[in-house]
């Protein structure tokens, strides 16, 4: 029972945080709120019996993502609007709220309609629990000798999947280096850019 109570509360906190992120215009505050959002998700993963996922989310989501976003903020802030306006997001002129609201409303309604015949939360007889998961739970010890099933599946049963993941991360790292590594023009130097001249 207490599990469900914590679950409900943390999910409500997450919903509130996401709305706050949407409503705020100060980018620094938004990035900090996103760090809180990630930390709350890590707590929720623990409640839902997924400690490995919680570790990763806390280290990678709340840690590395936040640092990356802060670094980007430092590199892209506009000095034109005075000191207070450094991290201020400009109110968008081109967008009317009605079309996005309609899209989101229709999509959300369709998805909620889809949850009507989904198995209930925590149902031990749901199809997801009765097929391949049973095999891992019963045979992990004899197949691999690793007590942590998540590790066993990640590094042994689906080792090639993880190898593919490493390839993806490597590719992303190379792409980031190609984009912003190496020649780093001082802001203010005339780059061969179209329209970047107003950056004094």
């Amino acid at each position: 029972m207490i599990d469900i109570l914590i679950n409900v509360t943390l999910l409500a906190f997450l919903a509130i945080t996401s709305v706050a992120i949407l409503r705020m215009t100060n980018l620094f505050a938004i990035v900090m709120l996103y760090g809180i959002f990630s930390l709350l998700s890590a707590g929720l993963f623990v409640v839902m019996d997924a400690p490995d996922v919680a570790f990763t989310e806390a280290a990678v989501g709340a840690g590395i993502s936040t640092v990356l976003m802060l670094a980007t903020l430092a590199l892209t802030r506009s000095r034109k609007r005075g000191h207070e306006g450094d991290y201020e997001e400009k109110p968008s002129r081109a967008h009317r709220p009605w079309l996005p609201l309609a899209v989101v409303g229709i999509t959300g309604t369709a998805l909620v309609y889809g949850t009507w015949d989904i198995p209930g939360f925590g149902d031990p007889n749901a199809p997801a629990q009765t097929h391949v998961a049973r095999y891992y739970i019963e045979n992990t010890m004899s197949d691999t000798g690793v007590p942590n099933m998540v590790t066993a599946v990640l590094a042994s049963y689906r080792g090639f999947d993880t190898l593919g993941e490493v390839a993806v991360v490597f590719t992303a790292g190379v792409a980031v280096l190609l984009l912003i590594g190496g020649r780093r023009p001082k802001s203010g130097a005339k780059v061969k850019s179209e329209g970047g001249e107003d950056e004094a």
Binding site: L22, L27, I30, V31, M69, T72, L73, T76, E89, K90, S92, A94, H95, P97, L99, P100, L101, V103, V104
Partner: peptide, 8 residues
């Protein structure tokens, strides 16, 4: 969809 700032 609705916000114009790329970081957001």
């Amino acid at each position: 969809i609705s916000r114009g700032n790329l970081i957001k």
